[in-house]
Computed example of a mutant assay.
Amino acid sequence: MSYAICIVPVAPMRSLHDHRAEMSSQVIFGEQVKIISTTDDGWALLECCNDGYTGCCRMNQFLIIENPIELKNEYCNEWVQPIYLNDEKLMVPLGADLSILKNSLQDVKLKYDGKVLIATQQKFTEENVIKLSEPYLNTAYLWGGRTVFGIDCSGFAQAVFKMMNIALPRDANQQVNEGEGIGFLPEVKTGDLAFFDDEDGKIIHVGILLNSQQIIHASGNVRIDNIDSEGIINTGTGRRTHKLRVIKRIKEY
Protein backbone atom coordinates (compact mmCIF):
# COMPACT_ATOMS: atom_id res chain seq x y z
CA MET A 1 0.00 0.00 0.00
CA SER A 2 1.30 3.46 -0.91
CA TYR A 3 1.03 6.62 1.14
CA ALA A 4 0.75 10.30 0.32
CA ILE A 5 1.07 13.71 1.98
CA CYS A 6 -1.27 16.63 1.36
CA ILE A 7 0.66 19.46 -0.35
CA VAL A 8 -2.13 22.03 -0.72
CA PRO A 9 -3.49 24.16 2.16
CA VAL A 10 -6.72 22.14 2.33
CA ALA A 11 -7.81 19.24 0.12
CA PRO A 12 -11.54 18.48 -0.03
CA MET A 13 -12.42 14.85 0.69
CA ARG A 14 -15.60 13.82 -1.10
CA SER A 15 -18.06 10.96 -0.87
CA LEU A 16 -17.58 10.06 -4.55
CA HIS A 17 -15.01 10.55 -7.32
CA ASP A 18 -16.72 13.75 -8.43
CA HIS A 19 -16.13 17.46 -7.74
CA ARG A 20 -19.90 17.85 -7.29
CA ALA A 21 -20.15 15.15 -4.63
CA GLU A 22 -20.64 15.93 -0.95
CA MET A 23 -17.51 17.13 0.86
CA SER A 24 -17.49 14.76 3.82
CA SER A 25 -14.18 15.97 5.28
CA GLN A 26 -10.87 17.62 4.43
CA VAL A 27 -7.19 16.75 4.47
CA ILE A 28 -4.98 19.58 5.77
CA PHE A 29 -1.48 20.41 4.54
CA GLY A 30 1.11 17.94 5.80
CA GLU A 31 -1.36 15.24 6.82
CA GLN A 32 -0.72 11.71 5.60
CA VAL A 33 -3.09 9.30 3.91
CA LYS A 34 -3.09 5.70 2.74
CA ILE A 35 -3.94 5.21 -0.93
CA ILE A 36 -6.61 2.51 -1.12
CA SER A 37 -7.33 2.72 -4.85
CA THR A 38 -6.98 5.10 -7.79
CA THR A 39 -8.89 5.90 -10.97
CA ASP A 40 -7.62 6.66 -14.47
CA ASP A 41 -8.94 10.23 -14.28
CA GLY A 42 -6.86 11.31 -11.28
CA TRP A 43 -9.07 10.46 -8.30
CA ALA A 44 -8.19 8.20 -5.38
CA LEU A 45 -9.94 6.58 -2.45
CA LEU A 46 -7.87 7.56 0.59
CA GLU A 47 -7.76 6.71 4.28
CA CYS A 48 -6.56 9.43 6.65
CA CYS A 49 -3.73 8.19 8.86
CA ASN A 50 -4.73 10.41 11.78
CA ASP A 51 -8.31 9.19 12.24
CA GLY A 52 -9.03 6.41 9.73
CA TYR A 53 -11.59 8.50 7.83
CA THR A 54 -12.02 7.53 4.18
CA GLY A 55 -13.06 9.54 1.15
CA CYS A 56 -12.18 10.57 -2.38
CA CYS A 57 -9.60 13.22 -3.31
CA ARG A 58 -7.75 14.44 -6.38
CA MET A 59 -4.24 13.01 -6.38
CA ASN A 60 -2.66 16.18 -7.81
CA GLN A 61 -3.16 17.64 -4.31
CA PHE A 62 -0.87 15.01 -2.75
CA LEU A 63 2.75 13.88 -2.89
CA ILE A 64 3.06 10.10 -3.13
CA ILE A 65 5.59 8.53 -0.74
CA GLU A 66 6.64 4.91 -0.32
CA ASN A 67 6.44 4.84 3.47
CA PRO A 68 4.77 7.12 6.04
CA ILE A 69 6.99 9.82 7.51
CA GLU A 70 7.66 10.12 11.23
CA LEU A 71 5.10 12.29 13.01
CA LYS A 72 6.45 15.17 15.09
CA ASN A 73 3.12 16.44 16.48
CA GLU A 74 4.12 19.96 15.44
CA TYR A 75 1.54 22.27 13.91
CA CYS A 76 1.18 25.72 12.41
CA ASN A 77 0.29 27.98 15.34
CA GLU A 78 -0.97 31.01 13.44
CA TRP A 79 -4.39 31.63 11.91
CA VAL A 80 -2.79 31.41 8.47
CA GLN A 81 0.88 31.41 7.55
CA PRO A 82 2.96 31.09 4.36
CA ILE A 83 5.01 27.99 3.70
CA TYR A 84 7.22 27.63 0.65
CA LEU A 85 7.12 24.32 -1.19
CA ASN A 86 9.81 24.21 -3.87
CA ASP A 87 9.73 28.04 -3.81
CA GLU A 88 5.95 28.11 -4.38
CA LYS A 89 4.06 30.04 -1.69
CA LEU A 90 1.16 28.32 0.06
CA MET A 91 -0.99 29.88 2.79
CA VAL A 92 -1.53 27.07 5.27
CA PRO A 93 -4.06 27.24 8.12
CA LEU A 94 -3.80 26.88 11.87
CA GLY A 95 -3.24 23.19 12.63
CA ALA A 96 -1.37 22.34 9.42
CA ASP A 97 0.96 19.40 10.13
CA LEU A 98 4.62 20.44 9.99
CA SER A 99 6.12 16.95 10.36
CA ILE A 100 7.09 17.18 6.69
CA LEU A 101 9.64 19.89 7.60
CA LYS A 102 11.77 17.46 9.61
CA ASN A 103 11.67 14.55 7.20
CA SER A 104 13.87 14.41 4.12
CA LEU A 105 11.80 13.87 1.00
CA GLN A 106 13.35 13.54 -2.43
CA ASP A 107 12.95 16.61 -4.67
CA VAL A 108 11.07 18.53 -1.95
CA LYS A 109 12.36 21.85 -0.59
CA LEU A 110 10.43 23.50 2.23
CA LYS A 111 10.69 26.77 4.12
CA TYR A 112 8.51 27.85 7.05
CA ASP A 113 9.22 30.79 9.37
CA GLY A 114 5.97 30.91 11.34
CA LYS A 115 5.10 29.93 14.89
CA VAL A 116 5.08 26.23 15.74
CA LEU A 117 2.93 24.51 18.35
CA ILE A 118 4.36 21.28 19.76
CA ALA A 119 1.31 19.30 20.83
CA THR A 120 3.22 17.02 23.19
CA GLN A 121 4.12 20.11 25.25
CA GLN A 122 0.50 21.27 25.55
CA LYS A 123 -1.07 19.76 28.65
CA PHE A 124 -4.81 19.21 28.77
CA THR A 125 -5.79 22.06 31.09
CA GLU A 126 -8.64 24.52 31.45
CA GLU A 127 -6.36 27.32 30.26
CA ASN A 128 -5.21 25.45 27.15
CA VAL A 129 -8.73 24.39 26.16
CA ILE A 130 -9.79 28.05 26.17
CA LYS A 131 -6.58 29.33 24.54
CA LEU A 132 -6.69 26.80 21.70
CA SER A 133 -10.43 27.20 21.08
CA GLU A 134 -10.47 30.99 20.83
CA PRO A 135 -8.65 31.36 17.46
CA TYR A 136 -11.59 29.57 15.81
CA LEU A 137 -14.21 32.02 17.11
CA ASN A 138 -16.41 33.36 14.28
CA THR A 139 -15.03 30.84 11.77
CA ALA A 140 -17.84 30.08 9.33
CA TYR A 141 -19.60 26.74 9.62
CA LEU A 142 -18.73 24.44 6.72
CA TRP A 143 -20.02 20.88 6.43
CA GLY A 144 -16.95 18.65 6.33
CA GLY A 145 -14.63 21.54 7.24
CA ARG A 146 -11.66 21.18 9.57
CA THR A 147 -9.89 24.58 9.48
CA VAL A 148 -10.24 28.29 10.18
CA PHE A 149 -11.29 28.65 6.53
CA GLY A 150 -14.52 26.82 7.47
CA ILE A 151 -15.27 24.12 10.04
CA ASP A 152 -18.02 21.82 11.26
CA CYS A 153 -18.87 20.92 14.85
CA SER A 154 -16.90 17.67 15.10
CA GLY A 155 -14.02 19.09 13.06
CA PHE A 156 -13.76 21.91 15.59
CA ALA A 157 -13.62 19.54 18.57
CA GLN A 158 -11.09 17.33 16.78
CA ALA A 159 -8.89 20.32 15.84
CA VAL A 160 -8.74 21.74 19.37
CA PHE A 161 -7.97 18.40 21.01
CA LYS A 162 -5.32 17.61 18.37
CA MET A 163 -3.34 20.63 19.52
CA MET A 164 -3.14 19.03 22.99
CA ASN A 165 -2.00 15.70 21.51
CA ILE A 166 -5.40 14.05 22.03
CA ALA A 167 -6.76 12.17 19.03
CA LEU A 168 -10.52 12.21 18.47
CA PRO A 169 -12.45 10.42 15.72
CA ARG A 170 -13.76 12.57 12.87
CA ASP A 171 -17.55 12.60 13.37
CA ALA A 172 -19.72 13.46 16.38
CA ASN A 173 -21.42 10.05 16.33
CA GLN A 174 -17.94 8.50 16.68
CA GLN A 175 -16.62 10.97 19.24
CA VAL A 176 -19.54 10.23 21.57
CA ASN A 177 -18.05 6.77 22.16
CA GLU A 178 -14.90 8.29 23.68
CA GLY A 179 -14.28 9.12 27.35
CA GLU A 180 -16.42 8.73 30.46
CA GLY A 181 -19.97 9.94 30.95
CA ILE A 182 -20.75 12.91 33.22
CA GLY A 183 -24.16 12.76 34.84
CA PHE A 184 -25.00 16.39 35.53
CA LEU A 185 -24.03 19.80 34.17
CA PRO A 186 -22.85 21.15 37.57
CA GLU A 187 -20.19 18.40 37.53
CA VAL A 188 -18.60 19.42 34.22
CA LYS A 189 -15.08 20.73 33.71
CA THR A 190 -13.77 22.95 30.95
CA GLY A 191 -13.00 20.69 27.98
CA ASP A 192 -15.78 18.16 28.52
CA LEU A 193 -17.68 17.42 25.31
CA ALA A 194 -21.46 17.81 25.10
CA PHE A 195 -23.36 15.80 22.49
CA PHE A 196 -26.79 16.52 21.07
CA ASP A 197 -29.31 14.35 19.26
CA ASP A 198 -32.25 14.65 16.88
CA GLU A 199 -35.81 13.37 17.24
CA ASP A 200 -34.66 9.86 16.28
CA GLY A 201 -31.95 9.81 18.96
CA LYS A 202 -29.10 10.15 16.45
CA ILE A 203 -26.08 12.18 17.59
CA ILE A 204 -25.92 15.19 15.27
CA HIS A 205 -23.86 17.82 17.11
CA VAL A 206 -20.97 18.28 19.54
CA GLY A 207 -19.46 21.22 21.38
CA ILE A 208 -16.76 21.95 23.95
CA LEU A 209 -18.01 22.99 27.38
CA LEU A 210 -16.34 26.06 28.86
CA ASN A 211 -18.21 25.68 32.15
CA SER A 212 -21.60 24.46 33.36
CA GLN A 213 -23.38 27.34 31.62
CA GLN A 214 -21.43 28.01 28.41
CA ILE A 215 -20.40 26.02 25.35
CA ILE A 216 -18.22 26.85 22.35
CA HIS A 217 -19.34 25.09 19.18
CA ALA A 218 -19.69 25.44 15.41
CA SER A 219 -23.27 26.31 14.50
CA GLY A 220 -23.56 28.89 11.74
CA ASN A 221 -20.15 29.99 12.95
CA VAL A 222 -17.93 29.07 15.87
CA ARG A 223 -19.64 30.80 18.77
CA ILE A 224 -20.17 30.75 22.52
CA ASP A 225 -23.73 30.01 23.61
CA ASN A 226 -25.52 29.22 26.84
CA ILE A 227 -26.39 25.68 27.87
CA ASP A 228 -28.67 24.11 30.47
CA SER A 229 -29.87 20.59 31.20
CA GLU A 230 -32.14 20.65 28.15
CA GLY A 231 -29.61 21.90 25.63
CA ILE A 232 -28.13 24.94 23.89
CA ILE A 233 -29.72 28.39 24.02
CA ASN A 234 -28.57 30.82 21.32
CA THR A 235 -27.26 33.93 23.10
CA GLY A 236 -28.40 36.21 20.29
CA THR A 237 -31.96 35.01 19.80
CA GLY A 238 -32.77 33.19 23.04
CA ARG A 239 -33.94 30.20 20.97
CA ARG A 240 -33.16 26.61 21.88
CA THR A 241 -31.13 25.12 19.04
CA HIS A 242 -29.84 21.71 20.15
CA LYS A 243 -31.18 19.04 22.54
CA LEU A 244 -28.62 17.72 25.03
CA ARG A 245 -28.09 13.97 24.99
CA VAL A 246 -24.90 13.22 26.94
CA ILE A 247 -21.71 14.78 28.31
CA LYS A 248 -18.38 12.98 28.04
CA ARG A 249 -15.05 13.63 29.75
CA ILE A 250 -12.29 12.73 27.33
CA LYS A 251 -9.43 13.24 29.77
CA GLU A 252 -8.93 14.27 33.39
CA TYR A 253 -6.71 17.12 34.53
Rank of each mutant, 00 (worst) to 15 (best):
T147C: 05
S133Q: 12
M1H: 13
T139K: 09
E178I: 09
P9W: 07
G181I: 14
N177G: 07
N50E: 06
L71G: 00
N86C: 03
D51N: 10
I130Y: 09
V206E: 04
P93M: 06
L63D: 00
V10Q: 07
D51I: 02
Q32T: 00
D228K: 13
E88A: 05
A11P: 01
Q81W: 07
N73M: 02
P186A: 11
T237S: 05
A4P: 02
S133I: 11
I118H: 14
E199H: 01
K72R: 13
E252M: 07
F195P: 10
V129M: 12
F184P: 05
M164W: 10
Y136F: 15
Y141K: 15
F196K: 01
R20I: 03
N77P: 00
G30L: 08
T190Y: 06
H242R: 14
V188S: 09
I204S: 12
N128C: 11
L110H: 08
F156G: 13
G179A: 05
T54F: 00
Y75E: 01
P12S: 07
R20V: 06
V108A: 02
I36Y: 07
M164P: 03
C48W: 04
N234C: 14
N103W: 00
P135V: 12
V116E: 02
L137A: 10
C76M: 04
V148H: 09
K251D: 03
A44R: 03
F184G: 10
N67P: 08
N138W: 03
L98H: 10
D200M: 13
E22Q: 12
N138R: 15
C153M: 12
K251M: 10
T39K: 08
C76V: 08
L193Q: 11
I215E: 13
L98R: 10
I118E: 11
N234I: 11
P169T: 05
A96F: 00
S154F: 01
G95Q: 04
F149C: 15
N211S: 11
L168G: 02
K72A: 05
A159C: 12
L105S: 05
T237A: 03
N128A: 09
G183P: 01
K34M: 12
N211K: 04
T120L: 04
P12W: 04
V206F: 01
I69C: 00
V80D: 08
S229Q: 15
E78A: 08
G114H: 00
L101F: 03
